[in-house]
Design a protein around this nucleic acid. Structure first.
Length: 863
RNA sequence: GCCUGGGUGGCGGAAUUUGGUAGACGCAACGGACUUAAAAUCCGUUGGCCGGCAACGGCCGUGCCGGUUCGAGUCCGGCCCCGGGCACCA
């Protein structure tokens, strides 16, 4: 072994060895049960960022752990290669998105390889390859045939200057990001996927996903949002205005109805009243996101229209209100201001009447004029509601629903919050939607034989409109049905389509004649999926939906794509800045800043290294280009080596929490590896090691051996079950500390040390595979550490003769006692009361009870 | 606004499942050893307050307020602050 830890050589040698052995190749049906470990595929943005490194290191640790436990492993990698950033880069630099993307992939692939991940690169997939997106198109056509895909209008952000549809992130404070022009809402035809047809199943199946975090399941359930309620018709001369409500019991308290600005009744009112038209127009401005709509000031306008209350026959005014969402329910609501917060606020603002129809079960009806807030409860009883007075929530709802049904003006139904998935994007760098528009034949699907519809790769967008639409060789085509000239669809698909099934294609990416084949049913479902919490809803829900669509077409034999899910936290770093001047805020990279500490070690100030003058500290934030606080993994790998970076990432925080970047923490990780290296060098330099004879150990040796095996048990549990890699690493560090502090040189001391170092090497292999490979050989092994099995704790070594228990008096720690491991309860109680440090606290007091928690503590309750 | 997490020393974090020794492990800081010197390395101290020459002991302490319990970082109720998502960023 080399005297010192030279990571560059060690890592290059280890990787060459694995490469030669094909150690990361996965083959169907190879030895052991299969295990599919998958990380969310990266967007090829240019360089790896720390979030990627964290994600893929977690995946690699899990992969290598299960491989050492005899599983047949698949860990693939691919590229989510379509998307907006490539077009933005193209606008900025004039490079076609394809070239930019392929260059980025090449660089980032090299980076991933330098981190030593056990990835089967022979299965690599890029979603911008025609061989991949051909199957997006193929399945889309199948969905069209089955009615799962369909066409309807949808609302988009429209930049009137650039004549372009904008993504939500391109709308800044209601204006286009490039033009600064106020953005308008615009209705355009789009294609949708009927995810709502699967709402019930997607919701119900969450209960059968024990391997998913509760938080993700809760978020998905709320997103799908099943509401049971009543659909009510309010008749008017042109028919009946439909509303949906979960509070039909309060129907007698409805004092007006409100419709969304996009509702047909609003259009009708606008045609008669310029003030309504103006308000509808005002609502057309501004963004389309739910956050914007929900936080905007609640505004509305009265119309001359009225509708008839279905039970009382009263005439209720129709308002147009910006808080009613066209996308949910019927785009209209009945307003019961006394018992709904939003209606209350709106009614107070516009002086609309309130009517109290619910009272507390043990109280009287409140005077609506005295209300300071809406009285919202399902635990009250009805009042001021005629024949329904005295009924509770459920009985009231049932009675009112029954009466409405009898009149043909209502029925119970379920309403979902989930909306169908609009997949049309008016953008170039995406998968073309395989349709042809013919004046005679309408929308004609591209025949399967003509797939894929290949996206031309040499166009360069300029920010105005979709370059595809201006590119005649793409647009102009022949109608497959009538053979006459026709126009090709130029919208492309949402990139979430690409990522909804890529994990299946890894199993069979070489199959050019089918989307998936039997190998998919060997590898899938994914055993462990790992990715950012920001994907908790959309990506994961779309994938669950897409998998079910494929199942129903007989393409795959499973329902859920991901059996276990681990959502990793983000990577943060310090933010430093200076304000003022014409430049506004300037952000400085933490590398350019020097921190000053006071005597207690607190950070007292920060100065820019370049000029020695202070900079403002703005706390921790997600690493990002805009805050200039990113750290380049490549620099770190070159400076410290891949193992050090991997070790730091695993040690600094548990995977689900945010991780705060710390260069000194990285240095600490390297210090540990150097110390380990040095310890093993010293150990092996002392010559051949005798065999261990466990029955010949003395007390101190038995203690050390117990710690070795306790560490095996703990690390196995932490890595294999809990995924708390930070505590696994801490236990490994403790073991190294213990071994190096037991410096005996008797034969059994050295034999024990050999066991300790072999154990440390094996336990560390998933986290720092390169150095583990070198240590394993240094310790005298001939085969790769990747072939070594995961160690098992020896139950005999774990046995203890005596236990230390904590003694509390009234819950306060007062002392410790050592008892035999099999001591009886009475003996433990006696020992606790006799303990000198406990005595003063029980003396002269009445011992009321003694709580004994086996193996842990004794609590004496005394007064 | 709605949905969802989180808050523990100077800092990252530990205390697992089912309430049972708060502060493991590491970083930073300080003191010491080695060195001509520095770096590196090694050893030691390190939640706060109080008492003691010392060994050691006492009290307080897990965002805030209240509750349940023999016992609460952990459970319950109410608040404050920070993060993720909100359907065209990925």
């Amino acid at each position: 072994m080399q005297d010192s830890y030279r990571f560059a050589e060690i890592e290059a040698d280890a990787r060459a060895l694995w490469e030669k052995a094909g150690a990361s190749r996965a083959a169907e049906g190879a030895e052991g049960p299969k295990y599919y470990c998958l990380c969310m595929l990266p967007y090829p943005s240019g360089r790896l960022h720390m979030g990627h490194v964290r994600n893929y290191t977690i995946g690699d640790v899990i992969t290598r752990y299960h491989r050492m436990n005899g599983r047949n492993l698949l860990q693939p990698m691919g590229w989510d290669a379509f998307g907006l950033p490539a077009e933005n880069a193209a606008i900025k630099n004039g490079v076609p998105p394809a070239k930019w993307t392929y260059d980025n992939i090449a660089y980032m692939r090299m980076q991933l390889k330098s981190l030593g991940y056990a990835i089967d690169w022979s299965r690599e997939v890029a979603t911008c390859h025609p061989q991949y997106y051909k199957w997006n198109q193929w399945l889309f056509l199948r969905m069209l045939e089955k009615g799962i895909a369909y066409k309807k209008t949808g609302t988009v952000n429209w930049d009137p200057v650039d004549q372009t549809v904008l993504a939500n992130e391109q709308v800044i404070d209601g204006r286009g990001w490039r033009t600064g022009a106020p953005v308008e809402k615009r209705e355009i035809p789009m294609y949708y996927l009927k995810i709502t047809a699967y709402a019930e199943e997607l919701l119900g199946a969450l209960g059968r996903l024990p391997g998913w975090p509760e938080r993700v399941k809760t978020m998905q359930a709320n997103w799908i949002g099943k509401s049971e309620g009543v659909e009510i018709g309010f008749p008017y001369d042109g028919g009946a205005l439909k509303v949906f409500t979960t509070r039909a019991d309060t129907l007698m308290g409805a004092t007006y109805v409100a419709v969304a600005a996009e509702h047909p009744l609003a259009a009708r009112a606008a045609a008669q009243d310029p003030k309504v038209a103006e308000f509808v127009e005002e609502c057309r401005r501004g963004g389309v996101t739910e956050a914007e709509l929900a936080t905007q000031e609640k505004k509305g306008v009265a119309t001359a229209l009225t509708v008839t209350h279905p039970l009382s026959g009263a005439q209720l005014p129709v308002w147009v209100a910006n808080y009613v969402l066209m996308g949910y329910g019927e785009g209209a609501v009945m307003a019961v201001p006394a018992h709904d917060e939003r209606d209350f606020e709106f009614a107070r603002r516009y002086g609309l009447p309130l009517k109290t129809v619910v009272r507390a079960a043990d109280g009287a009806a409140q005077d609506p004029r005295a209300l300071t807030e809406a009285f919202v409860t399902k635990d009250g009883v009805l009042c001021n509601s005629g024949k329904y007075d005295g009924l509770a929530y459920q009985a009231g709802t049932d009675a009112i629903a029954a009466d409405l049904a009898a009149k043909g003006l209502g029925q119970k139904r379920v309403q979902w919050r989930l909306r169908d998935w609009g997949i049309s994007r008016q953008r170039y760098w995406g998968c073309p939607i395989p349709l042809i528009h013919c004046d005679r034949c309408g929308d004609v699907p591209v025949p399967d034989a003509d797939l894929p519809v290949v996206l031309p790769e040499d166009l360069a967008p300029d920010g105005s409109g979709n370059p595809l639409a201006k590119y005649k060789p793409f647009v102009e085509c022949i109608c497959p049905t009538c053979g006459k000239p026709a126009r090709r669809e130029t919208d492309t698909m949402d990139t979430f389509v690409d990522s909804s099934w890529y994990f299946m294609r890894y199993a069979c990416r070489d199959n050019d004649s089918a989307m998936v084949d039997g190998r998919v049913n060997y590898w899938l479902p994914v055993d462990q999926y790992i990715g950012g919490i920001e994907h908790a809803i959309l990506h994961l829900l779309y994938s669950r939906f897409w998998t079910r669509v494929m199942r129903d077409m007989g393409l795959v034999a499973f329902d859920e794509p991901f059996t276990n899910l681990l959502t990793q936290g983000m990577v943060l770093n310090h933010i430093f800045l200076r304000r003022g001047g014409s430049a506004g805020i300037t952000y400085y990279s933490p590398e350019e800043v020097e921190l000053k500490h006071d005597a207690e070690g607190r950070v007292s100030s920060a100065v820019l290294k370049a000029d020695g003058r202070p900079v403002e500290y703005d706390g921790m934030g997600t690493m990002s280009k805009s805050k200039n606080n990113g750290v380049d993994p490549q620099m770190l790998v070159e400076k410290y080596g891949a193992d050090t970076v991997r070790l730091f990432m695993m040690f600094a925080a548990p995977p689900e929490l945010t991780l705060e970047w710390s260069e000194s923490g990285v240095e600490g990780a390297q210090r540990f590896l150097k110390r380990l290296w040095k310890a093993v060098v010293e150990h092996t330099a002392a010559g051949p090691v005798p065999a261990l004879n466990a029955s010949a150990l003395d007390g101190a040796q038995r203690d050390l051996r117990r710690q070795i095996h306790e560490t095996i048990a703990k690390v196995s549990d932490d890595v294999g079950r809990r995924y708390t890699f930070n505590t696994a690493v801490a236990a490994i560090m403790e073991l190294l500390n213990a071994v190096t502090r037991a410096p005996g040189m008797r034969p059994q001391d050295r034999a024990l040390r050999q066991e300790a170092y072999e154990t440390l090497t094996l336990l560390l292999t998933p986290v720092v595979p390169h150095i583990a490979e070198a240590l394993w050989r240094g310790l005298g092994r001939q085969t790769s550490v990747m072939e070594a099995g995961w160690p098992a704790a020896d139950p005999a070594a774990l046995k203890r003769d005596t236990l230390e228990l904590v003694v509390q008096v009234n819950g306060k720690l007062r002392g410790h006692i050592r008892v035999a491991a099999d001591a009886a309860r009475e003996a433990i109680e006696r020992a606790a009361l006799a303990e000198p440090s406990v005595q003063p606290f029980v003396q002269g007091k009445d011992v009321k009870k003694i709580v004994v928690v086996p193996g842990k503590l004794v609590n004496v309750v005394a007064a």
